[in-house]
Design a protein around this nucleic acid. Structure first.
Lengths: 149, 149
DNA sequence: CTAGGTGCAAATTCTTTGCAGAATA
DNA sequence: TATTCTGCAAAGAATTTGCACCTAG
């Protein structure tokens, strides 16, 4: 089961989880993805590649990966589905086009000093944050004629 | 229907919506709330006050208020329900305690200059953003013994 | 062999919709 | 009166769960 992708199976193993083909595929797929994915995204994509995993297995896997901090979940305005992304070495944020729904990752985080200040001010311990920016991308911006409500 | 709360019924009227008791109550309730509320929160609270509104009416009202920019919706990590808050004069963010789920509003927005910079850099038009910070509040922080996983 | 993972079907939860009657403008 | 709103019940979408079987360790 762990012939290839040694990093991936090691990551799973480190968390005292059993290394299975499903888990490897899901984590691998999330790692390769440049945008966050829903359980259904993963399900369909794997199915397209001839791999049949039950949707509930995907949900369960994502849940356990989330608990083990291998992935994080986020919600996007106007979309009921929860999205998941691989926890990488770099924390980042998203910029979503309100017209075409294109998602861009932003690597720079403008909040570090703000967080430290806030911790002092309010006596909180900050663990994480989610920032999503919404707007119109260059393409959609130019197509917009109906800027009035 | 518009005897009291002239501001509220005017706000509704301005958007070419009919002023009804339900709408006044929902908007009023959202205005008074210091934290974002789910449809169910509103439903239960009104019911506790002896007011029976159908849940689907609340969903429809929140939807139409959202379309008219009277309220905005947001999602919170680990909670399937959509939350709504009144659009006030001041934009703000949230700090949520991961232990007790207490929600604090943060009036200061640290992102204005960052947004402007980003617009230039990427040629986007930014419309809005959502920032939610997660951590442990002073009370829960001190109760935490099990900081290990 | 044993603990944990998986598929399947059914259940749950949150939200949306169709329709007929009620209320606002 | 015309249009919009509302309640009700039913449908729908996303996610979760119970259970029997399967598989990694």
């Amino acid at each position: 089961m762990e012939k290839h992708m040694p990093q991936i199976s090691d990551t799973i193993k480190k968390n005292n989880l059993k290394v299975t083909a499903n888990r490897i595929r899901i984590l691998e797929f999330l790692r390769e993805s440049k945008t966050p994915l829903s359980a259904e995204n993963i399900y369909l994509k794997l199915r397209d590649n001839g791999i049949a995993i039950n949707l509930s297995t995907i949900y369960r896997t994502l849940e356990i990966f989330t608990l083990n901090n291998l992935v994080i979940s986020l919600n996007v305005e106007g979309d009921k589905k929860v999205l998941y992304e691989c926890v990488g070495e770099h924390h980042h944020h998203y910029l979503i086009c309100l017209s075409c729904s294109k998602i861009i990752s932003l690597d720079y985080c403008p909040l570090e000093s703000y967080e430290k200040e806030l911790e002092k001010q309010l006596d909180y311990t900050l663990i994480s944050h989610r920032l999503v920016l919404y707007g119109h991308c260059p393409k959609c911006k130019s197509k917009q004629h109906n800027l009035t409500k």
